[in-house]
Nucleic acid binder design. Structure first.
Length: 467
RNA sequence: GGCGGCAUAGCCAAGUGGUAAGGCAACGGCCUGCAAAGCCGAUAUUCUCCGGUUCGAAUCCGGAUGCCGCCUCCA
């Protein structure tokens, strides 16, 4: 049987691949930095969530019980600004985007997490953490905001590899607006603005009427749902510094223990147009891509089959390549479904074993999806050849489908639902079959054209006409 | 200025010391009424460039060039 420590991940914390060893054997606790509920998610965020989905699905395929929590930031500058701009309540505003978010995840075939904690519902937990940090001397108040004191915390910078003495101060912060003791300190609780006070967007604390910062939100919710130390924290490379570093510092200062054993960071999606830098905000949203005619399935395929630690350049062309690859996969499944031979292939066991082993070992090796997919396509080619030679029995085909379904419980890109056609399409196909049989190819071609125009591609085989 | 990453066929992309996976596109053939799909075949003597280590390097070391990300407003 399989050994335990076969799975390894590239841990950002140590910058190396390490064997995955869960805190509790047979279980995996995973936290993912979720979205802000103020707009539709863009392709870069989709990538992060498809990635955390692959982590969860693979661990679960490998027999672990996965507990996955993903936060939703619904109480921050952006959501408050969005609600005010529309003149609706914060809750109504964020509810709408949370709803969009969940349906976007579903479209991308992402399995639901076990918990989706919302920041607005966990403010008390955050304030409690702030209080404990204050008591321990890691936090100080300044003009009714509470800051984390980096000088009190020696390990700061380990995750991101940043040397605080060397970074450029004030590059993106207007130093005049802040009153920190040290400009490198970060905010835990931020004093509420007048407009926020008026609308009740604040929480009273001993230090003043405040709002929790993003960093303390993630720290509080991850620990609440997964404990002081959990197995895996997934995030995006652009969030390593300062967010994940700060989150980690809060937890470490608080409990003396690491927040997560393993930190996984997915690379970004970059705009490729014009070769220049593209603002992340400039990336298309999932909604826009779907409106442009890209199926969420091909978007998932494109995102999932790339290696997560390599940046991805967005382009419509690449999504179309994904679409073609999916067609090959669909044709394969279709062909398997229509195998009706009785003669079995004697080495089918070996073939299926090789496929599963190849796939699993590629995925165990830091989720090497390109390699895993190569195994899959290699197998598709071999089976296609055998089917061409009528060396696969119906029973074999069923077993192949079973194995592939197992693999797809990780990848999530196959379409196993049998095609259903409208009566109109069925009638046209019947009519065309009859025309071909009668040798009326002119009519058959006309009907084929008609079907093609309806988006149905027609393939003739010996016995069946289908698409 | 600091830290980090990447450069493999027309495109996408694995491969971290043993003689270049896989996908898309294009080409020749089989099959087909014609197609499509599928199959077969041919496609990088070579991995940005220059040195070095080694019996052996896309893989290790040094250097050059190019591209990219992050560097505490918020998330």
């Amino acid at each position: 049987m399989k050994k335990k420590a076969d799975i390894s991940f590239y841990n950002t914390l140590n910058r190396s691949k390490e064997p995955f060893e869960p805190v509790r054997e047979g279980n995996a606790s995973i936290y993912t930095c979720g979205p802000t509920a103020d707009r539709r998610i863009h392709i870069g965020e989709c990538r992060r969530f498809v990635f955390s989905d692959l982590v969860c699905r693979h661990l679960s395929y490998r027999g672990l019980r996965v507990n996955h929590a993903m936060n939703i930031t619904d109480f921050d500058d952006k959501t408050i600004a969005g609600a005010e701009a529309e003149g609706v309540s914060l809750e109504a505003f964020t509810d709408r985007y949370v709803g969009h978010f969940l349906s976007d995840l579903e479209a991308l075939n992402i399995r639901p997490a076990d918990h989706y904690p919302r920041a607005a519902e966990h403010v008390d937990d955050m304030v409690a953490i702030a209080r404990r940090l204050h008591d321990k001397g890691y936090a100080y108040e300044k003009l009714r905001s509470l800051y984390f004191s980096i000088s009190a915390f020696e390990e700061y910078g380990k995750l991101s590899g940043i040397d605080l003495d060397k970074i450029r101060l004030g590059a993106t912060v207007d130093l005049d607006e802040y009153e920190k003791n040290n400009p490198r300190d970060f905010t835990l609780l931020k004093r509420a603005r007048l407009s926020e006070l008026k609308r009740g967007h604040y929480v009273p604390t001993p230090w003043g009427n405040v709002r929790p910062s993003w960093h303390i939100q993630c720290a509080a919710m991850s620990m609440k749902y997964l404990g002081e130390t959990f197995d895996i924290h997934t995030s995006g490379s652009e969030l390593i510094f300062p967010h994940n570093e700060n989150e980690s510092a809060i937890a470490r200062a608080l409990s003396g223990k690491p927040l997560a054993r393993c930190w996984l960071h997915c690379e970004r999606v970059l705009g490729s147009e014009a070769g220049g830098k593209t603002e992340e905000g400039g990336l298309p949203t999932l909604e826009e891509l779907m409106n442009a005619g890209h199926s969420p399935r091909e978007i998932r395929y494109w995102l999932a089959t790339a290696h997560y630690r390599r940046p991805l350049h967005f382009s419509h062309d690449r999504l179309e390549q994904a679409r073609s690859a999916l067609k090959r996969i669909d044709a394969f499944v279709w062909a398997l479904r229509h195998v009706d031979g009785e003669t079995g292939y004697p080495e089918i066991d070996q073939l299926l074993y090789d496929l599963r082993q190849g796939f699993v070992s590629a995925m165990d090796d830091d989720l090497n999806m390109p390699r895993a997919m190569a195994c899959l396509f290699d197998m598709i080619k071999r089976i296609n050849r055998l089917m061409d030679e009528s060396r696969i029995s119906r029973k074999d085909a069923g077993r192949i489908l079973e194995t592939v379904e197992g693999i797809d419980s990780v990848v999530g890109i196959f379409d196993f639902t049998p095609k259903q056609y409208s009566p109109e399409v069925e009638a046209l196909m019947r009519e065309r079959r009859a025309a071909r049989k009668a040798g009326d190819f002119e009519k058959a071609d006309r009907l084929r054209k008609q079907l093609t125009d309806m988006g149905i591609s027609v393939h003739d085989t010996e016995k069946v006409t289908a698409s």
